[in-house]
């Protein structure tokens, strides 16, 4: 290991242990690491946006490709900063309204055409097919699961009678799904923990020898 590699390993180990120290209780060392992390994360976005948006999508197309009309979104972007002056704060609503309007326009179509219709089409499968009883059972599970889940989240009518029974079935399905997701989340977080512990044991403690 070179000197710079040892320095990097110790630096990472210090901040890893500093952040883990919160598991005991909140302390100044954790706060130092936390504030540095927050600052680095904010600074990361400055570099990312500067390069991928301001330079690649605004400055280069305007100055090299001659797309001068991009000055309009550029000015709208700067108008966002009027939020910092009380008297003209309202001006920032214009670019905000533009963002909301375009996003809403994209969402309206993409949600209905890209999600609702394909998901509904894939749910409406023929019960009798050539793939045997296993596929039939799976199709029934999917149809019952989708309908009962939708009914569980339907709050315009009180969940009593047939609606209540279907909603109850919906809860069971939802619990199966949440259980599976919880299991996956636990495994994901534990994998990260294993990674950090592996770094501390193999790389950091390993560097002592």
């Amino acid at each position: 290991m070179t000197g710079i590699e040892i320095f990097q390993t110790w630096l990472i180990a210090f901040f890893t242990l500093a952040l883990f120290s919160f598991l005991y209780k909140d302390n100044p060392v954790y706060k130092i690491a936390e504030h540095i992390f927050a600052g680095l994360s904010a600074g990361y976005y400055v570099g990312l946006i500067w390069d991928t948006v301001i330079i690649q999508q605004l400055w280069t197309p305007m100055t090299v490709d001659g797309r001068w009309w991009l000055i309009v979104p550029g000015v709208m972007g700067f108008l966002m900063f009027t939020r910092f002056w009380k008297k003209i704060t309202w001006v920032s609503r214009i670019p905000l309204a533009f963002v909301m309007g375009v996003t809403a326009g994209i969402f309206l179509i993409s949600q209905l055409h890209g999600l609702v219709l394909p998901q509904m089409r894939d749910t409406m499968l023929p019960l009798w097919n050539t793939q045997g009883y296993g596929q039939l059972f799976l199709t029934i599970i999917i149809v019952v699961g989708v309908i009962s889940t939708l009914i569980y989240f339907y709050f315009s009518k009180e969940h009593t009678g047939a609606l209540g029974v279907t909603a109850k079935v919906g809860i069971w399905f939802i619990m199966i799904s949440f259980g599976a997701h919880f299991g996956y989340t636990v495994m994901g977080r534990v994998s990260l923990l294993i990674g950090r512990v592996q770094f501390l044991i193999e790389d950091w403690i390993g560097s002592f020898t």
């Binding site: 699961g145 009962s148 889940t149 989240f153």
Partner: peptide, 29 residues
Amino acid sequence: VMGGANMAVQRGIIIGAALGAASMSLRII
């Protein structure tokens, strides 16, 4: 479990959330 019950619930949630997002988009426009 993953390809049946779990997928059915995800599908139900996606359909519900997408309908909500579409109606909210319409309200904004």
